[in-house]
Amino acid sequence: MIELRSVYKIYFPGSENEVRALDGINLRIDEGEFVAIVGKSGSGKSTCMNIIGCLDVPTSGEYFIDSTPVSNLSEDDLARLRNKTLGFIFQQYNLISKLSVEENVELPLLYGGIPPEERKIRITQALERVGLAERIHHYPNQLSGGQQQRVSIARALASRPHIMLADEPTGALDSKTSMEILQLLQELNKEGNTIVLITHDNYIATFAQRIIRIQDGKIISDQKNEPKQETNQEAMADGH
């Protein structure tokens, strides 16, 4: 469970070019939800996700993850949280280019202290899950954008987190590949994972069960949604 209570993120506070990236956010996301956060560019979506993911700290306000106040956690506790509880999927994939697919997926397992045999099993499972098992010894620059994003999903899956945070995961992908990624997220959600999907694209947001609209750092609407199900290619092309 994720809970934000009047969270502010203010850049250059007090100065004339003050930026209120988050302007008093109150938000509660329950276990197993699939939430889309939608908004225009610069509305504060990424900032919000980075705070949820413990990658950034709010200027003020409280943030609870599974009822624990995050501001009370030590550096090591935060690292453990990022390792075990949170999985990130970034728009720019954030793979380490000099490491192979296998080594990239292995990283969170290494930091999680998983023994070698178990690591092997989990790497294979995660890569099979995203359909890239045969690319295990490739390097990121030998893969297409969609494949790289799938590797980054496999990396997020490998440590079996129960909250997945995806910031514009389809931002750099064509619509067909985008649909595959979204389907994968839906599947993961069905297995009980909490999913937070950040997007500027209303169509993509319709894949979620709940759509939160954000503008100038404020939540302007928060609605339930009947998640769009897998469609064929033609429908997708129309949808855009």
């Binding site: 090591d76 990022r82 990283l107």
Partner: peptide
């Protein structure tokens, strides 16, 4: 940047 990626994956400072 690589250090940032590693930290986002759960690397502690000492790692």
């Amino acid at each position: 940047r690589e250090i940032g990626i590693r930290k986002s994956l759960g690397a502690r400072k000492r790692d």
